[in-house]
């Protein structure tokens, strides 16, 4: 298998690059129908929902409570108006304290 590693890396690099580069270069300068453009503008928020849930609950295997506490901390900080870096550092701090005392 070892001799295949470089070929695997090359293959993975190519198939990862295609979905990244094709839309950005192909769609450059093209006007899309309003409905399609509307759907595309919705993607960021829809994808954030799908990226956060359910995965945030599984950050520690077999311990849903750990992820739940992290999620509560992150949402609480964000709704309180903290900026992104504070939300990140604050959630890490809450979980670090929780694992040290828990």
């Amino acid at each position: 298998m070892e001799k295949w590693y470089w070929w695997i890396i090359l293959g993975m690099a190519i198939v990862t690059y295609i979905p990244r580069a094709f839309p950005l270069t192909f769609l450059e300068g093209r006007e899309l129908p309003p409905l399609v453009s509307g759907v595309l503008r919705n993607i960021p928020f829809a994808v954030l929902g799908a990226l956060i849930f359910p995965a945030i609950l599984f950050v520690q295997e077999g311990n849903l409570l750990f992820g739940f506490i992290g999620a509560v901390a992150a949402f609480a900080l964000a709704f309180a108006g903290a900026n992104v870096i504070i939300v990140v550092m604050g959630s890490i701090a809450v979980l670090a304290i929780y694992s040290l005392i828990g």
Partner: peptide, 24 residues
């Protein structure tokens, strides 16, 4: 171990931090 575990929340916390202000 405790820091590794705590830091595993980082990217999700970032997603939350990006989403919530736009949601308000």
């Amino acid at each position: 171990a405790f820091l590794q575990a705590a830091m595993s929340i980082a990217l999700y916390a970032m997603f939350v931090g990006l989403l919530v202000p736009s949601m308000k």
